[in-house]
Computed example of a mutant assay.
Amino acid sequence: MANKFICTLLLIAVWATSTSADGIENGSPTTIKAHPYVVSLQGTDGTRVCGGALIDSTTVVTAAQCLANYDVSQLVVGVSNGTQIVKIAKSTFDVNFDYVTMENDVAVVILEKAVSVGSIQLASSEPKTGASGVVTGWSASNALVDVSETIITATDCVSGEYSYEEGEVLSTMLCGLAKNEACNALPGSPLVYNKKLVGLVSWGYGCANSANPAVFTNIASVKSWIKKAVKSL
C-alpha cells in the first residue's frame, strides 16, 4: 500500500501532472473544432491544472483529484481552447474517492452559464481490450494535441503482462497504452472511443509506455454516480 501511494505521487508529477508540468509529449496536433467538448480547469491567471469534458452545455466531467487538490473558488473553466472563460457555479466529487488507490476518481462541475459548443456522450459500456481511443490535451507550447491509446480492461491490465499487480487497477479504472511514450497529460483529460467519453486521465507509474500503461477512470463504471451528482447540484 505504501508503495502504491509513492507511485501515485510520482504519477501526479509525471503522467497526470501538477501545474509545473511542461505539457503532453509526443502528441499529434489537433484542433478544438475536432474536440469541442475538451475544456480545462484553470486558475484565474490562465494556468491549467486539469482537463475535463463537456457532457452538455453546462456540465463538465473531470477527475476528483482536480477538486480535492485545489480551492475550487479560485478555479474557472476554459472553453473553446481557453478563448471563453466561464466561472464555476457548483461542483462535487465522489465522496468515495480514495487518494491511495485512486478509486472513484470522478467529479462534476456545473458552469455559471451555458456554452454553445459541442459536448460528448458518456459511454454506457467499457471498451474491450484492443480498442483504439484518443486522449486530448495540451503540449508544452499550449497547442492542443491527441495521444492515441490502445485501451486495456482492468482485468487485462493486472494480468502480469504490465507493471500493475492485482488489486491496483480496480473496476472503476481502465488502462491505455500509448503508441509512443507519453507524459504530462493533465488529470481529468478525456479519453474518447467511438465518439463517446470512456475515460479520464487519473494515474500511472511514471510515463506511459509498453510496461506502464496510463490508468483512467472508467466512465461506464461511474456513469450512474455522474447522473445522480448532476441531479443533486
Rank of each mutant, 00 (worst) to 15 (best):
V198G: 03
W203V: 07
G43D: 03
D98T: 13
W225G: 05
N184T: 09
S91P: 09
I110H: 08
S148T: 15
A16K: 00
I120A: 00
L197C: 09
T155Q: 13
G130Q: 10
S40D: 03
F5A: 15
K179I: 15
A53I: 11
C207Y: 08
T155E: 14
S221F: 03
A21W: 05
V95D: 07
T58S: 10
T217K: 05
S125L: 13
V201K: 02
I110A: 06
A107Y: 10
S119C: 00
V100G: 04
N209F: 13
D98F: 08
S224R: 00
S20K: 14
S124C: 03
Y193I: 03
E166S: 14
T47S: 13
S119V: 12
A64R: 10
C183M: 09
T30M: 12
L186V: 11
P187D: 12
S189E: 11
G160R: 10
L75F: 10
G188R: 05
G27A: 12
Q42K: 15
T172E: 08
I12V: 07
S57M: 00
L174K: 04
V222Q: 05
L186F: 15
L186A: 15
T47N: 07
V72C: 06
C66L: 14
S210T: 13
M102K: 14
S20A: 10
L67C: 08
Y70C: 01
T30L: 11
T150Q: 10
L170D: 07
G46C: 08
A64N: 07
P213E: 09
Y70G: 02
F97K: 05
V106E: 04
K90Y: 11
V147F: 03
A21M: 05
T155P: 01
N26L: 14
T153V: 11
L197D: 04
I219A: 02
Q121S: 12
V201C: 04
N180H: 09
G206K: 11
Y205S: 03
K90G: 03
W225F: 14
D98W: 12
K223G: 01
I12C: 05
V145F: 09
G52Y: 02
V49P: 01
T155S: 08
G137M: 08
K90H: 06
V39R: 02
G199R: 05
P187L: 04
T59Y: 04
C175A: 07
A214L: 08
A89I: 14
V158F: 01
N194W: 14
V215D: 02
N81Q: 11
L75A: 05
L174N: 10
S28D: 09
T136N: 00
E168Q: 14
E126C: 05
T58L: 04
G52D: 06
